Amino acid sequence: MAYEVYIDDMLLPLPPEKIPVKYSGQNKTANLINGEEINILKPAGLAEINIDVTIPQMDYPSAVWDGSIDNAEDFLGKLDALKKGKKPFEFTVVREGFGGDSLFDTSMDVTLEDYKVSDDVSQGLDLLVSLTMKEYRHYGTLILNFVLKENGDAQSEQAEGERSGEAPQEKNYTVVKGDCLWSIAKKQLGNGSRWQEIHQLNKDKVKNPNLIYPGQILALP
């Protein structure tokens, strides 16, 4: 089985050996007057991800650099920007079977809680970076806009350009150096896990989703 692990739009050059995701609960235990113990059910807590990432400082045949970073300094700079940016980003794991078949993917909005950089003699010149990420849930106030028809009934206002019957415009993207289907889906569609949709639309020209080339023109959903 092959793994591709992305932090935001950054492909880790070497996938972690383990990817533990802890799904916490918030249930509370209480005691009734008669001494009976009960469990008060609460909404699920935020998931937490702890991974150890090896950043190679030497050439490894198994290491894959995606073009956005190609050394340890770039990687640490990206982590620093994510930590100071105070914005959620996407954590994605793309899984592929031994026959090249796509398996289930993990895609989760997270925040970078902390990270630790270690120089370990057993790792040689390589850096070991321990990351702690926490699931991010979007929240906010829902605002509905209504217009009044002549008969006084309220009707939700339809956004311009979303009228029924209008054919969606076809979009294309030209592949550049360092692109992969996941990064294209992230940049163009806002969600890297939608890379399979791009692959389905372009199966006539992309036989292997892991092999795309600069200059290729891909249709986007």
Rank of each mutant, 00 (worst) to 15 (best):
T141A: 15
G35W: 04
D114A: 09
K87A: 04
I19K: 14
L12A: 11
A81F: 00
I69S: 13
E160I: 09
L125P: 12
K83E: 03
I33N: 01
D204G: 07
K149I: 04
L128P: 03
G161Q: 04
A30P: 08
I217L: 06
E37Q: 15
L82A: 05
Q169R: 12
L201G: 00
Y136V: 07
S24A: 02
L128N: 13
R95Y: 02
I184A: 06
D204N: 07
H199A: 02
L128Y: 01
D9P: 02
E135A: 11
V110A: 04
E96L: 08
K149N: 09
R163C: 05
H199W: 13
T141N: 15
A81L: 00
Q155L: 08
S107V: 08
N39Q: 12
L11R: 08
A47G: 14
S193D: 08
P209T: 02
I198L: 06
V147W: 03
K28H: 09
R163I: 11
Y6K: 01
W65T: 00
D59A: 15
H199L: 03
L131N: 00
K116H: 02
T106H: 06
A185E: 15
Q123D: 14
G45Y: 06
F91A: 02
L32I: 00
D74R: 06
V110C: 00
L112I: 02
G45D: 03
N31Y: 13
H138R: 14
P20E: 12
G152D: 08
P15D: 14
S118P: 01
D70C: 10
I212W: 07
L82K: 03
Y115A: 07
R194T: 06
D179S: 05
E157A: 15
L201I: 01
I51T: 07
G178S: 08
K42S: 03
